[in-house]
Design a protein around this nucleic acid. Structure first.
Lengths: 317, 317
DNA sequence: TTTCGTTACGTTAGTCGTAAAGATT
DNA sequence: AATCTTTACGACTAACGTAACGAAA
């Protein structure tokens, strides 16, 4: 019997519903069922009376809950207290990323987890059409966004990686046969519009309003999510500029990805609300800087080391 | 962080010694070290100052211990309480057996563990020369002994299995070339004596004092343990009657095992102190009876079932 | 040299998810 | 049919032991 089981029991005793309990603890109902069953086997009697319609504590279950809850709270508080005084950090940290971009920072996350095993990292999908929304609403603590980001209320961390820019275009589009395109060619295209208004500087940097020679670039249908972007592009109604990783992760048959000759690079960096900067966030930035310096070291050497210098070991919690 | 880690921490905080902590928890020092290190990583600061000479709580460690201990006790008590009221049983149960005999009851132990996952079973070796000693001293709760056992303070449970009796004899002994012996042949042998006095009825039943025709059977060197028995028999100084399993598990080159023509069978049964019969012991007897009845069922059918009727599932705790 | 704590590494047990099967309305 | 819990099964993680190493007396 471990704390995890007790947590599951106490949560179910509150929710009286396997599904909601599983949601709260980010488990499956199967797992909840298994854990409760295990405790009932150890104790030798049911803790809950349950049908598919209702879950209720038995008398014994209620007694168990009552005896358990105080001790459980005390222990979690003791750990929190020690963590607070020990300089460690614990608790949840939610990262937001666009599609596969979070994969690109896996080394940072590794280093972070090794340093702070008690932090549980969660992920949320960020829509390119509303990059700041979840950050501002507090749903994500750190968002991995493409630069530039110049918002007065947001802080931008170190650049974590760089992607080639590619033009995502319907396979039936007139340009689709080309092996590459230039920004100038966008003058002949209709570019997706974000349903949410993006800041002008961001829009300009990613999908400019004018070609280098000054031709205006036409704006097309409004989309509100990444999958909508994919769908609209697939129908050939519009095009948009994306990071090269998209070609890898969304190789749809009716979508073509073309390199952009002007060789534009997309820089990615973690971004967070300045006002709610926590110790978690500072620790994440430190991890990012650490990885950055390691990478610089490798590049400076110019040779691929047989045993790359890994500063921290993986957690093994 | 789980209860197990907390238990390890609290024990080390008491013992201030990795080796003793490991012993108390039946772990290795490596494991203790790993668990403490994990907690220190989570907390972010050392809990113990340790050299190879001394282990001491840091200030933070002491605070942690103080905050933790009450909650830990509360939780373990809550579980104990629920187990007590739920009809389940928990805690240690020590079984004693002679050599490989405990293997013969593995099915009973399986059934028992499935019914009572919270009971941790330990094993202790019982010497055939002093079968009741550890039972009476409380070192073992249940001993698996060969019958007959007729002691006023002991209760004998159901027979768990039956072994062929064999004569264990030095390879150089005059009888060693035979393919089998009769009890009558013991008249020509010297039989081991137990260092501790065995009850007469037991001695008579196993190594009788007279052959069927009335010849006395000579008593030889006193031995005080099973390995001493093996050694003495190997030198050819004496012989003794053992269960057939011994031939399997101790196939020493200078020891020969001979079937006994009179076809004596050795019956094994669990035995415990009547005065200290606990719920654990009653549960063990029930498990033994369950297996007994299953076996009877199989024998009655006369056929080996493809899917033998296993009443309880294995624990998967 | 012995005693004690740590590190490295391989094995195994148990957690957890997926998928499908019961049960109840 | 829809909703909810349980069972079956497989994958993967972390607990744990073994063995070797390192430091202190």
């Amino acid at each position: 019997m471990e704390l995890r089981d007790i947590e599951i029991f106490l949560t179910l005793a509150e929710e009286l519903h396997f599904g909601r309990t599983a949601d709260r603890l980010r488990l499956t109902t199967a797992r909840v069922s298994q854990s409760i069953k295990k405790q009932e086997r150890i104790i030798g009697a049911p803790l809950f009376d349950r049908t598919t319609r209702a879950v209720a504590l038995t008398q014994l279950g209620d007694r168990y809950r009552h005896n358990l809850s105080a001790g459980y709270r005390q222990i979690t508080e003791a750990i929190q207290d020690a963590v607070a005084h020990g300089g460690g950090i614990a608790g949840p940290l939610t990262l937001g990323g666009m599609g596969p971009q979070t994969l690109a920072v896996s080394r940072i996350i590794e280093v972070f987890q090794a340093r702070h095993p008690a932090v549980e990292i969660h992920y949320r999908e960020i829509q390119p059409t509303a990059p700041f929304q979840q950050l501002r609403s507090g749903q994500v603590d750190i968002a991995l966004l493409w630069l530039p980001v110049r918002e007065p209320d947001l802080t931008v961390g170190p650049v974590t990686h760089v992607s080639q820019a590619m033009l995502m275009i319907g396979a039936s589009h007139q340009l689709a046969g080309r092996t590459s395109v230039a920004i100038e060619d966008l003058g002949d295209c209709t570019v997706l519009t974000s349903a949410e208004e993006l800041p002008a500087y961001m829009e300009e940097a990613i999908n400019p309003f004018h070609t280098p020679t000054g031709r205006p670039i036409r704006r097309g249908p409004r989309v509100s999510s990444w999958h909508e972007e994919l769908s609209v592009v697939a129908t050939g109604k519009a095009v948009t500029i994306v990071a090269a990783e998209a070609a890898h992760f969304y190789p749809w048959p009716n979508i073509t990805y073309l390199p952009i000759e002007d060789g534009r690079l997309i820089q990615w960096a973690p971004v967070w609300r300045t006002a709610t900067e926590t110790e978690h966030i500072r620790a994440f930035r430190r991890a990012a800087q650490k990885v950055e310096s390691l990478d610089r070291g490798c590049l400076a050497n110019g040779t691929s080391l047989v045993n790359p210098p890994v500063a921290e070991r993986s957690p093994h919690l």
